[in-house]
Design a binder for these strands. Structure first.
Lengths: 110, 110
DNA sequence: GCATTATATTGACATACATCGATGAAGACT
DNA sequence: AGTCTTCATCGATGTATGTCAATATAATGC
């Protein structure tokens, strides 16, 4: 898998490869998914448990149920979270393997 | 300095402290600064050199000079970059110490 | 002083986004 | 079948954002 380092290590010389526009687009979309305080809060809660029911999220944030649903859709479409339906309930969970590339893009050493 | 881990390590239990709204707001603002492909590209270029002249950026992206200036302002106000004026030229440089907290928020181990 | 060059700011416009109330879809329970 | 609960989608509305042309600012050189 290609490693996208938006911020390469300090070492790199002047011939560091330039990010192509497709990569920049994809990264921007994923950062945009985190560019809202409610979604940061949702991700924070998802990270604290194996999975979280939508009902817990609508209870935790002082926003309408459609609004929470809207934010979850954005996180889903960015590929950062995954949903599993069991009966009437929907359980969301964070996808660590989707977050990892963002860390790498910010210059994580590995 | 308080460490903000939006995504704590895998270990954490159900009583993981919840992100307060002020922290969520600040993180969202910084992620929003990275939520545009042009700005991702700018940051990428800034990371590849000690400092970059605005003129190089306006040449590199197929956008008007005011638009580049606008994006640089957003990165500046998010505290991710810094500008130094020398004569007629403005040189921008990335602030690694500002990017680091974002990496930590995404669950970097240290 | 005047022309030129490098950036920033302003104003306008079109598009994207966050939010809500209303409604829809599907499972659970009686 | 009918009702209740859970969640998603739709439609509307106000605000934020990306973009550019025009203009302002400020340094350089003649």
């Amino acid at each position: 898998m290609k490693t996208l380092q938006v911020i390469p290590a300090i070492c790199c010389g002047p011939d560091t490869p330039v990010l192509d526009s497709e990569d920049a687009e994809r990264l921007a979309t994923q950062f945009r998914a985190l560019a809202d305080p409610t979604r940061v809060g949702i991700v924070n809660r998802l990270a604290a448990a194996a999975e979280v029911c939508v009902c817990d999220l609508t209870a935790a944030f002082d926003l309408s149920q459609p609004t929470i649903s809207h934010h979850l859709r954005i996180l889903r479409e960015a590929g950062l979270v995954e949903v599993t339906k069991r009966g009437t309930w929907s359980y969301y969970r964070l996808l660590p393997e989707a977050v990892e590339p963002l860390r790498l893009a910010l210059g994580a050493s590995s």
